[in-house]
Design a protein around this nucleic acid. Structure first.
Length: 502
RNA sequence: GGGCCGUUAGCUCAAUUGGUAGAGCUGCGGACUUUUAAUCCGUAGGUUCUGGGUUCGAGCCCCAGGCGGCCCA
């Protein structure tokens, strides 16, 4: 668990025996003129290429074909004059190496037994054969150390403790091919998102992560400092206000996939730093961008897993295909409470409903926040199948357009998947005068102590005053998309999540 | 922020009422030319997260702290 450095690195005196042994081997090899970390090895084939070239070799076959392969030693099975090792390479492919006294000679066999430990990278040159048991193997003519491992590999037969998996992800990746699959799935999903946008004529932009004023979401920012400019800066909580400036400027279809930072705790679905996708499209609405968002998710599922009925980590299936359910926030809340709730329902009554359900709410909450809390508690958390919930309270949606016919609600949807919020979409508010009023309301909340409230961004308002076309906008958590598609927790979808130092 | 649980060998975990800290794998020594988590014989390995306290005696009880997990806000 603890990885203290040795008090004396040269002798490694205070090290556990297993690390001392490996350090000693390295030193002995160097002293004997053998480089435990050679710069290059005459590899001719990947393990996967060997496997692909000989898919159906019968047992106990000699092909006569010579190859040079490399891999990390995952298992070793030595007998007196014949040694077996299971090599594993990057994509998880395994191939057996065999070293026989007859082929490599006494010295090379003794060196193999004496020098090679589990976890070492080795190079094997030899003939492709199958063993008597039918295992595809490379029967060595010679071998060479490719990189000596100085730390023992944890046992491969027991799961690594979750904390160690996160803190030492490299070990997790070595031991658990599934961990590497997750990384590849994530890459496939992100690539699919980009391709879906490119196919639809969107342009990818990168907007500031260091901002002089944070905005675009209600969240607490990280504060940092520019020495040269002698001023505080904020790590962005959302790219929204910059992407809208792009739309004002005539980039009518823009998207960005990048990191957001929110100065909040982490749990199974939150991380202080997370990957966010946002996209804006002129002349789109929250109706049309809901359709496109569904397509983005479905295309990503197809690209990464070849199906829209994905298999989750617990083995269950999750169906993302076809059309998705749509609810309204007030309608579904009314149904859950058994009584009509509207934008005109007084705050006192909402508080009473919360109290009746033993839901504790902040006494400062107004109508909008109370409705959202009640809804999340009574409806949102129980939505398993992909569901769009539409028409949010205006009060809590300061950047969203007022509904075109329904008073008191905004043209905003949230997409819920497996009980958590995956994405949100708006018909964007583009009237600069109304926008200013909303931001001024927010800034009054901020002045009153709400440090999640937005500030008045004068430059953003100036941009809107030049005229932003009617637009739809969407934000989707990329980590959460992976969670939705795999059933993993957010810490498994992020390669190196933030953890306190040991 | 609050509550509960955990923290022991390289890894995964045991340890009765407070009474010499154990196992499997790994390691080390040996045997073995067809193994598949090889097998067999032998053997080593500990600041029990840290610091205090109680006690004849603490992995275990008490206090403070660290790190992590779960639940709640």
């Amino acid at each position: 668990m603890t990885d203290e450095l040795p008090t004396d690195p040269a002798t490694g005196e205070d090290l556990p025996e297993q690390m001392r042994v490996r350090r000693d081997k390295r030193a002995r090899l160097l002293a004997g003129g053998v480089d435990p970390y050679p710069v290059q090895l005459p590899r001719t084939h990947s393990l996967a290429e060997v496997r692909a070239a000989y898919p159906d070799l019968p047992s106990d076959t000699a092909t006569g074909d010579k190859v040079g392969v490399t891999g990390r030693v995952m298992f070793i099975r030595n007998t007196g004059k014949l040694c077996f090792a299971t090599l594993r390479e990057g994509d998880g492919t395994e191939l057996q190496a065999m070293l026989s006294l007859n082929n490599v000679g006494e010295d090379a066999l003794a060196a193999w037994k004496g020098d090679v430990d589990l976890g070492d990278h080795v190079f094997i040159a030899g003939e492709v054969i199958t063993s008597r048991r039918g295992e595809l193997s490379v029967l060595a003519d010679g071998w060479q150390l490719a990189a000596k491992a100085l730390r023992p590999l944890p046992v491969a037969h027991k799961d690594l403790a979750e904390e160690t998996r996160i803190r030492q992800r490299y070990v997790d990746l070595i031991l658990r091919p599934r961990a590497r699959d997750t990384v590849r799935s994530r890459a496939a999903v992100v690539r699919s998102l980009r391709e879906s946008f490119h196919d639809r004529g969107f342009v990818e932009v990168e907007t500031p992560m260091l901002q002089t004023m944070h905005g675009g979401a209600t969240a607490r920012p990280f504060v940092t400092r520019s020495n040269a400019m002698d001023m505080d800066l904020f790590l962005r909580i959302a790219p929204e206000l910059y992407l809208k400036r792009c739309v004002v400027g005539g980039l009518e279809k823009v998207f960005e996939i990048n990191r957001n930072f929110r100065n909040e705790g982490s749990d199974s679905s939150h991380s202080p730093e997370f990957a966010m996708l946002e996209y804006y499209e002129a002349y789109a609405t929250y109706d049309t961008n809901a359709v496109m968002t569904r397509q983005l998710v479905q295309e990503a599922a197809d690209a990464a897993f070849g199906t829209q009925v994905v298999t989750l980590a617990d083995g269950s299936e999750y169906d993302l295909s076809g059309e998705w359910t749509t609810l309204t926030m007030y309608g579904s809340l009314s149904e859950a409470l058994g009584t009509e709730i509207t934008p005109l329902t007084p705050v006192e009554l909402l508080r009473k409903h919360a109290a009746d359900r033993e839901l504790e709410v902040d006494p400062k909450y107004g109508h909008g926040k109370l409705v959202e809390e009640l809804w999340e508690h009574l409806v949102g958390n129980h939505l398993y199948a992909p569901t769009f919930v539409r028409d949010f309270p205006v009060e809590t949606s300061p950047l969203t357009r007022q509904h075109r016919t329904e008073p008191g609600v905004a043209e905003k949807w949230d997409l819920y998947v497996r009980g958590f919020e995956l994405a949100t979409g708006y018909s964007e508010l583009v009237d600069p005068v109304v926008e200013r009023e909303r931001l001024e309301d927010q800034s009054r909340l901020g002045a009153a102590g709400d440090d999640e409230a937005m500030r008045v961004d004068e430059d953003f308002l100036r941009a809107l005053e030049y005229g932003m076309p009617p637009s739809g906008g969407v934000g989707m958590g990329v980590d959460r998309l992976l969670m939705a598609l795999t059933g993993l927790g957010i810490r498994e979808t992020i390669l190196f999540p933030l953890v306190r130092p040991e």
